[in-house]
């Protein structure tokens, strides 16, 4: 650049630092609140620096000694969330790989019909058709079960499309060569196509894991038994204490625990995640 960039640079860094602080501030407050006993958080003066009850609070919510309004430990809720997130992520990827493979590498009657049927699911987020979906799941006897938590959410047009998009870029000659060498369609899928799609599958996994972990409305509806509470919706139950005092020193550690796994996945797989996100949209 032709001009002196010193001031421009300084302002940019200043604004960015402010932005980072703004984004991180709620987490700091949540962390600080996790380090105080319950009384300290209801008396009015708000601490900005951590206290000494960190381990006690985390230990209490993770163990069973919690005096909050929910009768199960946060450890169980975290486990339920993990089952749900993994079930949704792996399930979506599995059925999408198969469907995309069929649509790209085969010709069969009603192929485009199948394609559009799957495509339509993009337009119907679960929030929009809450009650009928709930009734279907109730009729199938899936309330309060891991199947009920995962199965209805694993039909994903998104993953199917991303994979279809990628499969189309695989040169047809590759399949041709495999066939000439005597490999059948299943063999080609497992030995050639899946290894080629490794990065796409990983990126997809990150996005779908977060999607599954962060589900709120769906577990709220179909779990009446506390044994199947997921952590994201369990927090709402901890807040809903009517006229009683909210146990903030337990809610805040739970909040931190609830965001740790998805945030960890994003940060650890940042490069893949950003690539996946921007490419699914492109």
């Amino acid at each position: 650049m032709v001009e002196n960039r010193f001031w421009l640079n300084l302002i940019s860094h200043g604004v960015l630092a402010l932005g980072v602080l703004l984004v991180a501030f709620p987490i700091w407050i949540a962390f600080v609140a996790s380090t105080y006993p319950a009384q300290a958080l209801v008396t009015g003066t708000v601490p900005l620096w951590p206290g000494d009850q960190l381990l006690e609070n985390f230990g209490r919510v993770l163990g069973t000694g919690s005096d909050s309004s929910v009768g199960v430990s946060v450890a169980l809720m975290l486990f339920n969330s993990l089952v749900m997130a993994l079930g949704i992520a792996l399930g979506k990827i599995a059925i999408s790989v198969l469907a995309a493979y069929a649509i790209v590498f085969f010709r069969f009657p009603l192929r485009m019909f199948c394609f559009w049927l799957i495509f339509m699911t993009l337009m119907l987020p679960v929030e929009v058709r809450i009650i009928p979906t709930f009734q279907v799941v109730a009729d199938l006897g899936m309330l309060n079960s891991y199947t009920g938590l995962t199965l209805p959410l694993i039909a994903s047009a998104t993953a199917t499309f991303l994979l279809r998009q990628f499969f189309m870029t695989v040169p047809p000659e590759l399949a041709e060569a495999a066939r000439v060498d005597g490999a059948g369609p299943i063999r080609f899928l497992i030995d050639i196509l899946l290894p080629l799609s490794r990065t796409n599958l990983a990126a997809l996994f990150v996005i779908m894991f977060i999607y599954g972990w962060n589900q709120y409305l769906w577990p709220l509806l179909i779990t009446t038994s506390e044994d199947y509470y997921t952590v994201v919706m369990g927090i709402q139950r901890m807040l809903a204490v009517g006229d009683g005092e909210v146990a903030w020193n337990e809610v805040m550690p739970t909040t931190l625990l609830a965001m740790l796994p998805p945030v960890g996945v994003v940060l650890m797989m940042q490069r893949l995640f950003v690539k996946g996100l921007i490419e699914t949209e492109k």
Binding site: A102, M120, T121
Partner: peptide, 21 residues
């Protein structure tokens, strides 16, 4: 084979999306 491959996704789409809609 292609029918078998799209079947899982098709079934879930029909049961949990199209039918409730």
């Amino acid at each position: 084979l292609p029918w078998l491959l799209v079947l899982p996704q098709l079934l879930i789409t029909l049961v949990f999306f199209i039918w409730p809609a």
